[in-house]
Design a protein around this nucleic acid. Structure first.
Ligand SMILES: [Mn+2]
Ligand SMILES: [Mn+2]
Ligand SMILES: [Mn+2]
Ligand SMILES: [Mn+2]
Lengths: 219, 219
DNA sequence: CTTTTAGTTTAGGTAAAACTAAAAATTATT
DNA sequence: AATAATTTTTAGTTTTACCTAAACTAAAAG
């Protein structure tokens, strides 16, 4: 098990996010990393020398098996740390991403597994995203967008997209959290907004922009 | 509050360890860091441009007030993480140092303070070393070497030096932990070894080499 | 008072990781 | 098919952080 630089790990993570094990364009990768295309060309050259990616010039970059495995192990660390920060230290779910970006680079198998064990071997992080398992298996990606449920259904919120801090602020203001259940009272045929009723009796209206970032299952 | 590279932080920590706010020689610093003298000369130049150290060529390097403050904040993080790893995740006290070396570089005031709060705002780490407080104050350095206690005294182990993994193995084999109490039964005038009696009735003999790395108070 | 030695700095070089500017290849449009 | 637009690569710089080899300083030994 070789040791990797933080930069390398960030490239691997970005590649996995953008394409999984499919090829990704230089430009998309540059945009995601926040570097110029020329920097990416060089970085990718270094990665291919370590057999983490294959490169076809002018065509695209693709993770190797080793690359995918590394990407999953970094994602596992990221999401376990996010879980720790929220569940154990009491951070808000809007605060933990930048911290997990740092903590995911700490290198120690044993630390990750002890952390997972301490947290009760969770399968999903505070945003409902699946936590890759030690063997590389991915738990299911939960839920469907709120708009997919018809009037009259009872639903449970199970996942949210990371759509920026204003989105999280809005969720907090509306008191919406993972695990909450609601009755779908109406879906607007005018603007696709959704009207929910909480068990407390309160009614909330969600704009389409909010809905597409909130995922739920029937409850 | 500027942001510092990992290398910079390691130099600051080394300087604080070697001399506190007193001057340190280039060679000692090089030995501690594990780099060559020439590399240290350059690194120290970068640090002085950030006003973290003052340098007198051929004479020595000295932390500024800012430098001392930074050193303490890093040490605080290091020792809080060590406490977390031992108390919360169940690591052995011989395992946590290299992990804390990585975790101490994570940048977030709030994370450190939440961690401290979660751990009960500890004043000493798993080795008994003082944890610098947020205001910069240092809790007392506890204990005296075992050899300092006369026969007949009852003592409590409060601190151990980091004298390598074999030392920790030996402590574990002898079941010696922080907080344990013993009666001093004898001190050899031949080889300065110490004979202790545990509350369980078991007797253990500690060589001089062991004793000088174990600190205790009267109990 | 010279010489040796230990310690330090300078000079010059490598590698990672970013940049800008210019050239080359690919893709899209007339 | 020819040209224009876009994307990607190449070439040359910069900064950080390390290295070796050579020169320099200061103190100790002869
Ligand atoms: Mn995240
Ligand atoms: Mn997440
Ligand atoms: Mn330590
Ligand atoms: Mn310690």
């Amino acid at each position: 098990m070789k040791t990797h630089t933080e930069s390398e790990e960030n490239y691997i993570k970005a590649l996995y996010h953008l394409g999984g094990d499919n090829p990704v364009s230089n430009g998309d990768l540059a945009h995601r990393i926040g570097a110029k295309g020329s920097s990416v060309t060089q970085a990718v050259k270094r990665l291919s020398q370590k057999n983490l990616v294959t490169v076809v010039p002018y065509k695209g970059v693709q993770l190797t098996e080793d690359g995918v495995q590394l990407a999953k192990s970094i994602l596992r660390k990221h999401r376990l740390w996010e879980t720790f920060l929220v569940d154990t230290l009491g951070f808000g779910w809007d605060q933990v991403h930048p911290l997990a970006e740092q903590l995911e680079h700490v290198q120690s198998e044993e630390l990750v597994e002890r952390l997972s064990n301490f947290l009760g071997a969770p399968k999903h992080d505070p945003h409902g995203d699946p936590i890759p398992q030690p063997n590389g298996q991915m738990p299911p990606v939960l839920g469907e967008p709120l708009g997919a449920f018809a009037k009259g259904h009872t639903i449970k919120v199970v996942r949210v997209e990371d759509a920026g801090s204003e989105f999280f602020d809005q969720l907090d203001a509306m008191n919406i959290n993972l695990g909450n259940t609601y009755d779908v009272e109406a879906i607007s045929s005018f603007d696709a907004s959704v009207q929910l009723k909480a068990p407390s009796g309160h009614t909330i209206w969600l704009s389409h922009s909010m809905c597409v970032n909130i995922y739920a299952v029937s409850a």
